[in-house]
Design a protein around this nucleic acid. Sequence first.
DNA 1: CGACGCTGG
Length: 704
Amino acid sequence: MVDNPYLAHLKLSQRRALVETSSVSANREPLFGFLPRKVKGEQVRKAMEHELNPFTKQPHSAQYRKILESRKELPVYSQMDEFFEIFSRHQIIVVVGETGAGKTTQIPQFVAYSDLPHSKGKLVACTQPRRIAAMSVARRVADEMDVQLGKHVGYSIRFEDMTEPGTTFLKYMTDGMLLREAMNDTALSRYSTIILDEAHERTLATDILMGLLKSLARRRPDLKIIVMSATLDAVKFQSYFSLHQPSEKPSPAPLFKVLGRTFPIEVFYTQEPEPDYVEAAIRTVLMIHRAEDPGDVLLFLTGEEEIEETCRKIKLEADDLINTDPSSVGPLMCVPLYSSLPPQQQQRIFEAAPKPTQEGYPPGRKVVVSTNVAETSLTIDGIVYVVDPGFFKQKVYNPRIRVESLLVSPISRASAQQRAGRAGRTRPGKCFRLYTEKDFISELQEGTYPEILTSNLASVVLILAGIGIKDLVRFDYLDAPAPETLMRALQLLNYLAALDDEGELTPLGRLMAEFPLDPQASKSLAKMLITSPEFKVSNDILTITAMLSVPNVWLRPPNQRAAADQAKALLTVPEGDHLTLLNVFNNYSQNKSDRNWAWNNFLSARALAQAENVRAQLLRTMERSEIELISVEDERKRNLGIQKALICGFFMQVAHKEGEKGSYLTVKDNQVVGLHPPAVLMPNQNGYYSTSLCSPSAVHSYGD
DNA sequence: CGACGCTGG
């Protein structure tokens, strides 16, 4: 700097001062000499060791030093130079690595050091398929960077924006949240780099974002994109994001491989196919319990009922074993796990295995019987044995009748690998696959179907229309949905008057897109809510909409079914399921002071609290969109209004009774449908019939 | 007696 000829006119003393300040600033400024996106690993390592935090300019805490030492143990830390090398040279890269390799926590930090987003008022975003992951990873990274969560590092999820505009430069968020943002800012101009994490899970939102970002990359050369995934699908992502230079052959996006750090897992197959996978699973768990070394077991089954039943059977047989010969086998604890399980009971999966019944006797064992939640969303430490019968419940969508249903189906090889991996997180493990090796190789498909191929796409179409993408058939999908699925979605939105006959978004459609609600056939909630002021019942429809957007509120514990049904009967109103839901919520609100109200009435406190949250968010959206909030005093008029608004939003499901046999025909296209069994359906004073959910397709009947 | 695998705004 002092050799600069422009400084020649300065006096010597001034020049000396300049040298001193610049060397001071080199010492005091951890990011001295950092050029955005030309940063090298060596510089970053030095900055990390610096006494000052480069982003807060505060001295690093002792905790920071400690965490930094553990970060250095991660394989990805030693690959920093290689990462910066690839990241600096390319706009789009693909990162692969086993879970637990540290890619979710480390890569976004590396990017922040390279992008220096804080110096340009930009952000680095890292998307996650689940809220809980976005929250917990952000918390961990804030600790690693020695900043307060919500300041320089934050997260953004549906009900919580833990960021500070102007300060936050590294943001973890749900993929759905970023997709929403794309509706308001098509160029995603706030971001310097966008990282799509867990891309192999192929959620609807991540798939759409990949399509959007691929085309956005051409318009925004300054935007960098990183797609992070587990190993199997890397090649697919690489070729999808290949660069098409006009004169050259397309070259696949470069790959950065994060080295794993998992323990070896021994995989066993059955000799012959098992005719009854539940029976085989129980047999295998007990075999492990009798013959294998200490260590917990994870068994994958398909659903709540199957899991509860199996837990009972395993427990019975294990008790039998220990009663026959308490000295040869330890006590067994069997815990169910599925998402609708109350949180308190979910916690049981983290309890330690039981102690030996008596000193010197064999130690106890914990067996977790779980749905697919344990495959991705929830990690249980200490699992050594995995039992994989090879089935899961798959969603299938039939566009012709617009019905989504669940089907027990064989898993994919990718899924089998993921399940096996759950055995090797703390030490070497074993995986028992209850199918033959031949079937694994030749019968299982490679990957699980991405969501975009098995879902009703009405909400996706609405969002894309909101972003301004009209030609949905030619949108650049990683996996294109069936044209019929798209057509049915467009048709539905046209019926709902969200799209006009030219496929243009109508003002109503734009409004509908604002609401975080499904515009699906089974519940056209947004439309119902928006049109409800017409019937002077928007306040009530708001509540019903919120109740319909959360999981089932009715609890029915196996040993208290009669009591639960009785409690439900007390809250039921004759006008139907929806008015009953309204009644439940209103009673819940009036009894907020009684903490046990929900439990005493056999209702899910979690679902009700969620409904309250959703209601508040929808209310904010209504206010923003200036939708009137009204309700009429007269109860009969109100109920009639509510029923009219329901039919308006649910018109695809309106059916009329056909003869006396109890069968129904839909008004829209004469499909034969039935009523959902637990529905409340009884004639009211006017001879009208009232609503209900239904299987296979929901039906709502209000007289003729 | 049924249902509802999991997740998101």
